[in-house]
């Protein structure tokens, strides 16, 4: 890779009380890349994303974003720096309207009205169903619509690095395809993406590179198509 990494994770460990969930994870994401992290349930994928956004504290190691250490920054400053996350299970603000959810997504960008209103239009164009239901409480949307809302909400935070946690979880196959198409499209428009997925085949299918996580450690990292060809990965995660 010619340029410096946008995200650099070096030897990050995380504990839940006495239980160690991450064991010295190191990885990089370069500008413009789409990187997938695959692994089984409980491998530490969500914990890693929570540590990057610092809703979970790292017990050791450092996280660098654009050459700035963000390991100990409060979560809202990490978002303001341009790292936005679409959390696992959507986690929309259920009683608030679709529009309010999106507006809160732009909470750190609220001073820049011009950009915000433009981006809001773009998100509504990307997900026309949200525009149709803009006044409806977010909790009344279907799972797929909530996923679109969660992605739209993160886009309004003006991400330079978008973290996606299991965007396909609980969605019908057709919707999964749609969501992955949108993720790919966002990446082509220049958003750098770190995608965490149990659906390894779909994730590696659109990714440039991949990391395989097992019980809190990186066990493999390679180009996505190499991982798709890898015998061990195929047996463990792709099922053929």
């Amino acid at each position: 890779m010619p340029s410096d990494p946008m995200l650099k994770v070096s030897s990050v460990s995380t504990h839940y009380g006495p239980v160690q969930a991450l064991h010295g994870i190191s990885m990089e994401v370069y500008p413009g890349e789409l990187v997938a992290i695959v692994g089984a349930n409980g491998a530490g994928k969500t914990t890693l994303l929570h540590t990057l956004s610092r809703v979970q504290n790292a017990s050791a190691g450092q996280v660098w974003f654009d050459g700035m250490e963000i390991t100990r920054l409060p979560p809202h400053k990490i978002v303001a720096a341009g790292v936005c996350q679409v959390p696992e299970g959507r986690q929309v603000f259920a009683p608030l309207s679709v529009d309010d959810n999106l507006r809160l997504g732009g909470f750190t960008q609220r001073k820049d009205h011009h950009w915000f209103e433009q981006e809001l239009e773009r998100v509504y164009d990307l997900f026309p169903i949200l525009k149709e239901k803009w006044q409806q409480a977010a909790g009344t949307l279907s799972g797929g619509q909530q996923q679109m809302l969660a992605i739209g909400r993160a886009l309004l935070g003006r991400p330079r690095l978008l973290l996606l946690d299991e965007p396909s979880m609980g969605l019908a196959p057709l919707l999964v395809e749609e969501i992955f198409r949108i993720i790919q499209q966002l990446n082509e428009q220049g958003v750098t993406i770190l995608l965490v997925e149990q659906n390894a085949r779909a994730a590696l299918g659109i990714a440039d590179r991949g990391y395989v996580l097992e019980t809190g450690s990186v066990v493999l990292s390679a180009k996505a198509d190499e991982l798709l060809e890898d015998e061990a990965v195929r047996r463990a995660y792709l099922g053929y």
């Binding site: 959390p87 986690q91 603000f93 259920a94 809160l104």
Partner: peptide, 17 residues
Amino acid sequence: IACSCNRTAAHLVGINV
């Protein structure tokens, strides 16, 4: 209000909880 609905999500959209 967002902080009470979902504190983690509030952190993740950049609200200073």
